Lab assay of single mutants.
Amino acid sequence: GAPPLPPYSAGGREVTMKKGDILTLLNSTNKDWWKVEVNDRQGFVPAAYVKKLDSGTGKELVLALYDYQEK
């Protein structure tokens, strides 16, 4: 199953993602919540729920390892 959710501390809205989604990583300075862009929406997802990909394009991409439903 998915890892436990860290307390929400990102101070911005969250976004929903599905397992297998490829998201653009915008900011990973917060260790628990990373800012991503998905379907032209920006928001935060739990860092433990995604994995960085080596895209080779200069853009940082992450793979959704679990479904996440915004609150």
Rank of each mutant, 00 (worst) to 15 (best):
G12K: 07
E60R: 11
K35I: 14
V36M: 01
G43Y: 07
P4G: 07
S28Y: 06
S9Y: 09
L23C: 08
G56W: 09
L25P: 00
Y8S: 13
Q69N: 15
L5I: 13
A64W: 01
A64V: 08
R41L: 13
S28I: 05
A2I: 12
K35F: 15
A10G: 08
L63A: 04
K51F: 06
Y66F: 09
V50L: 14
P3F: 05
V50G: 01
D40N: 15
G43T: 03
G12S: 07
G58C: 07
G1W: 08
N27F: 05
D21C: 05
E70W: 09
K35W: 15
P6Y: 02
T24G: 07
Q42P: 07
N39I: 13
I22P: 01
K31A: 12
G1L: 07
A10V: 10
M17K: 00
V15H: 05
N27Y: 05
I22R: 04
D32S: 06
W34Y: 06
Q69M: 07
K51G: 05
P4T: 11
Q69K: 14
Y8L: 10
N39R: 13
R41S: 12
Q42R: 12
D67I: 02
K18T: 09
M17H: 01
L63Q: 10
V45M: 01
P3R: 05
T24Y: 12
P6D: 03
V38F: 14
T16Q: 09
T16G: 12
K35L: 15
L63I: 15
G43A: 05
E37V: 09
V45S: 00
D32L: 09
L61D: 04
V15M: 14
S9I: 10
T24N: 09
E60I: 15
G58F: 08
D21W: 09
Y68W: 07
E14R: 14
W33K: 01
V38Q: 14
V15S: 03
G58D: 14
V45A: 04
D21P: 00
G11R: 08
D67W: 03
K31S: 12
L25I: 06
R41T: 13
N30Y: 05
P46A: 02
G20R: 01
A64E: 00
G1K: 12
K52R: 12
Y49P: 01
V62C: 10
T16S: 15
Y68E: 00
A47E: 03
G1D: 14
G43H: 03
W33A: 01
L61E: 08
V50F: 04
S55Q: 11
S28G: 11
E37A: 10
D40M: 13
R13L: 13
P46S: 01
A2P: 15
R41P: 00
G20P: 00
K71T: 15
G56K: 13
T16N: 12
L53C: 07
R13D: 14
A47W: 01
F44Q: 03
K52I: 13
T57S: 15
P4C: 08
V62G: 13
G20K: 01
V15F: 10
I22K: 05
